[in-house]
Amino acid sequence: MINTRKYQNEKPVDADLFEGQGHKQVAQAIASVLLSDSSQHIIGIEGNLGSGKSTVISILQQEIVEKGYHVVTFDADQYHSTLKPALIQNIETELKALIGTKEKYKLDKLGSAVDTALGKRLEYTKDTTSHISFSAIIFAFSLGVSALQVKPSLKFLAELADGLPNLDKLSGWLAVYRFIRIAFISIYCLKSRRV
Rank of each mutant, 00 (worst) to 15 (best):
A86G: 11
Q89T: 07
P165W: 00
I138W: 09
A76C: 14
A76K: 03
E103N: 12
F139A: 01
S130Y: 08
D127M: 00
K109P: 15
A86W: 04
L122H: 09
A147W: 14
A113V: 05
Q89A: 00
L143M: 07
L95G: 00
L107C: 02
K102V: 02
R121F: 12
Q78N: 11
V145S: 12
S81Q: 14
I99T: 07
G163K: 01
T82E: 15
I138D: 07
E92F: 13
L157F: 02
K151N: 04
G119I: 02
V150R: 09
S153N: 09
K84L: 06
T125N: 08
Y69T: 00
L160I: 01
Q149F: 15
S112R: 06
K169V: 13
G144E: 08
S133R: 07
Y79Q: 04
D77Q: 08
L148V: 02
L160E: 11
H80C: 11
E123D: 15
R121W: 06
E123S: 15
F156I: 05
I99L: 15
S135M: 14
K151W: 15
P85D: 01
S153V: 09
G111I: 11
T125Y: 00
G144F: 03
T73R: 04
P85E: 01
S142E: 03
Y105N: 12
V72M: 06
T116F: 09
D75I: 01
G163F: 00
E94Q: 12
T101D: 11
L164P: 01
E159K: 10
T129A: 06
D77K: 02
E94L: 05
L122F: 12
L118C: 05
L154I: 11
